[in-house]
Structure formats: structure tokens, C-alpha cells
Simulated scan of single mutants.
Amino acid sequence: MGKGLNGKRIVIGASRKLEDMCTLIKKQGGTPIVRSLQGTVFLAEKQVGPDLQAFVEKGADWVMFTTGVGTEALVNLAEKLRMRNRFIQVISEAKAAARGYKTMAALKKLGIIPEAIDEDGTTKGLMKSLEPHDLTGKRVMVQLHGENASDLLTFLKAKGATVVPLLPYQHVAPNQETVALLCQELQNHEVDAVCFTTAIQVRSLFNFASEKGIASNIVQSFHEQVLPVAVGKVTAEALKEVGINEIVTPQLERMGAMVVELSRYYEKEGKTIR
């Protein structure tokens, strides 16, 4: 394998697995630059505990899980509250829906096979898989993922469901100085590529840029000089929503695959900018 990132300055927008990503970038000859665009993720135990207790007591007709980490967080919280077995029993007795391969893996560990799954890792894909199902009058628990998944909740309510949201973790705003620094680097063309591993990172960057009145400048930087890289379809969709359409995305939605795909892109193109 060549070193396609030789001489490239690669920004990492993630807050997790930074050491692994930095090592991969260095192995490919690049210089990793950490600019975490995703604030600390924390388990909101005090907030979600009563909701989880109520869900276990009342149950649901459907349970919908949208992230692997969120699924595991609910199981862990149920264990802390000494109701893990009851929680698993309740979700096992309901019809299940899942979004994403990590969620599928988490449910598999619990012995749960979803009746509805997305085809592309997106919330839109999950909603499409739910279209044939009659949810009228059904009680539906939805595991949210750090943000209020308004599209999914609106969809479920439109189908006549009673929605029971559970939000096991929350995202806080990233360090504003970090985002400001990255905006400066992007506008000055001081970096070659930015690796986004979640849609939240994209929104953090562009929410800040919009507040400062420089969003169009950032989009222009990505169009002209800086290569946007997305770990998967959901993250790529967030970039497209702000007007960035030429995006490097791996077929396998993994961080390691993303770095390898970026390296291959540069080796194929044989240039540092587009």
C-alpha cells in the first residue's frame, strides 16, 4: 500500500478513536490535525432514568433503535437501575426496528431480530422500511441519538403512533475556539482535507459558520481547495444539505476504511487539490 497522504494535512473532526485515526493517517504519510467538532457525549442518567423506568413498566408495541451506542447505553442504564432483565424482556416482546449496522450488532447481542431495518444506514431508509406497517394506535418507543430525530418522530405520529422517546445521551457544543480555528484554516487553505465521522460534526461547523456569516466562504473552500470526507451516507447527506456534493466516502462505513479511501483518492488523482 502506498502513502497517498504524503504531505497532506488531514483534519479529524471526531472526538472518539482519535489515536487510531492519527496513526492511520501517519502510516499513509499524512499529518493529522485534530479539530473535534463533536462535543462531549454523556449519558443523561438523571434525565432518562424515570423515562426508562416508565417504559419498562408500560411496555410498547414497537421499539426503534437508531444507534448502537444508544442501544448499549440503555441496556447499561437498565442494569444500573437493576432492571436489565426486565428491559430486555420488554423489548423482546415488542416488534423491533433498527437503523445502522452498529445498531443491528447491538441488538444481535441481545438476541433480538428487527422486523424493520433500513437499507442504507439512514433515518429515511428506516422510515421507508416502516411504511408497510400499520402503526395506528401503537405505542412506539424510539431511542434517540443525542439529537431530536424530528423527521422520524413526525413520521411516526403521522402514522397514528403514540411515541415514547428515550434519549440516553446528549451532545454538547464543541469548543468554539476549536471551530473558529478550523474555519480560519479552511478559509486560508491551510488544510487539505477534513474527515467527518458524524452528521453532527458537519452541523457544528456550519452552524458556527452561519452565526459568523462565513458559511458561504466555508462551502467555497470545500469546492475549490479542501477535500470533504464522510465516513458514511448519513454524514455525506449532511454535507450535501449545505451544498457540498463532491465527497469522498468509503463503501465500508468505518473510520479506517475512510482514511484508506482518502489515500486512494489522492493516489488516483495525483494532486493535492481539485
Rank of each mutant, 00 (worst) to 15 (best):
A158I: 04
L126C: 09
I117E: 12
G4I: 01
V90T: 15
A199L: 02
A158S: 15
E237C: 07
D134F: 09
M64A: 10
R254H: 04
T272C: 10
K233F: 03
L181P: 06
E57D: 13
A149H: 08
S204I: 00
I12K: 03
P174E: 06
Q225T: 13
M64D: 02
I244K: 00
S36C: 09
N85V: 04
Q220M: 11
L135D: 10
R82V: 10
K159Y: 14
A149Q: 11
K58Y: 03
A180P: 00
V259G: 08
Q187H: 07
I88K: 09
V202R: 00
S221D: 07
V234T: 15
I117M: 14
Q201I: 05
R274E: 06
T123G: 02
L144H: 06
E79W: 02
G270D: 11
G146C: 03
E57H: 07
D120A: 09
V231L: 04
M127L: 11
L182F: 03
E72A: 12
K95W: 02
A54E: 15
L166C: 12
I247A: 11
V11R: 01
P114F: 05
E253M: 07
V229C: 10
L18C: 05
Q184I: 02
D192G: 08
K124S: 12
S92L: 05
Q47Y: 10
